[in-house]
């Protein structure tokens, strides 16, 4: 009976190898390349292979780096807070208040409609809305809520976080909804029979059982926000920066080694954040 077992092992290896090869070529190699380039030297228009720590020295020596990393975390945390509250509420409504599966699917598809246009269009459409003479300000003035246009609506941290929440909430809704749909309804009935009120059921039954979904959504949102550069540039009118912008500025000024160094530090930071998140919840239960 030894032969089939060998074959099994071989089939197993063969089956994972296409994915492994693809990941190696398109994920591992580029990252290794970025790591290598981050030690290179640069002059005005050429990049010279070398092994020196200038790029990292400049990065850690500049006070701007720290502000920018703080900013990146600020956007990530704020966006996470709003998306988790909105995402949980929407998913909860869909999963527990809508009784028929047809309606659940229909309403769920409704949530995805904004995704029929591109990220950039959804984001840029905020600009005329929030501007000094935009719809939001003129409406508020005509209602008598304010006398002067509100300046902080656009080109501010507010508009950046607003755009992030708008773009990324669905990434929170989907995994949470998915987990909630798997919760055994009899558990809720049992809790009800045991005398728990609505809030207690929510807090002691549903939230713990939804944690893996929340965590998957969190990983989506946090990594997307931390890696973004375009939303921050457009919505802040280039007034604030996160790490992604630092990298994109470097690239546009042909400073590839410096951009690579920043990218490596960002990658390590994001991996640490995900590592910490995974400590809290075992998401394998979901997979």
């Amino acid at each position: 009976m030894q032969k089939p077992r060998v074959n099994n092992a071989l089939t197993g290896w063969l089956m994972v190898s296409p994915l492994a090869v693809v990941l190696f070529i398109f994920l591992v190699l580029p990252i290794v390349m970025i790591a290598v380039v981050s030690f290179w030297q640069t002059t005005a228009f050429s990049v010279i292979p070398a092994f020196q720590f200038d790029n990292y020295e400049f990065l850690f020596g500049s006070p701007v780096t720290y502000t920018v990393f703080v900013n990146t975390f600020k956007y990530a945390i704020l966006t996470w807070m709003f998306t988790v509250v909105i995402g949980f509420t929407v998913a909860y409504y869909l999963a527990f208040h809508i009784r028929s599966l047809t309606w659940q699917v229909a309403l769920f598809l409704l949530c995805t409609i904004p995704f029929l246009t591109s990220n950039i269009i959804r984001m840029i459409s905020w600009i005329p809305f929030l501007g000094r003479n935009g719809i939001a300000n003129s409406a508020l003035i005509s209602w008598g809520v304010i006398d002067q246009p509100v300046e902080w609506l656009l080109f501010s941290d507010f508009s950046v976080v607003l755009a992030f929440v708008h773009i990324y909430t669905l990434f929170m809704v989907v995994p949470i909804f998915n987990t909630m749909m798997r919760i055994d309804k009899s558990l809720i009935e049992a809790a009800r029979d045991g005398g728990a009120n609505g809030a207690q059921i929510l807090w002691n039954v549903i939230v713990p059982l939804t944690k893996p979904g929340i965590m998957i959504g969190t990983i989506f949102v946090v990594t997307l926000v931390m890696g973004d550069f375009f939303t921050v540039r457009i919505m802040s009118g280039s007034q604030s920066a996160n790490v992604g912008r630092l990298i994109s500025n470097d690239i546009s000024l042909l400073q590839y080694p410096s951009a690579s160094a920043t990218a490596i530090i960002l990658l390590i930071t994001v991996l640490i954040v995900i590592g910490i998140l995974l400590r809290f919840v075992n998401i394998r239960k979901e997979l």
Binding site: A44, N249, L253
Partner: peptide, 19 residues
């Protein structure tokens, strides 16, 4: 202009944008 200190200027400019 592109200056002799272009490299330095570019880095400082990046800091200005990020500040």
């Amino acid at each position: 202009s592109v200056m002799d200190q272009n490299q330095y200027m570019v880095r400082k400019w990046n800091e200005f944008i990020a500040a």
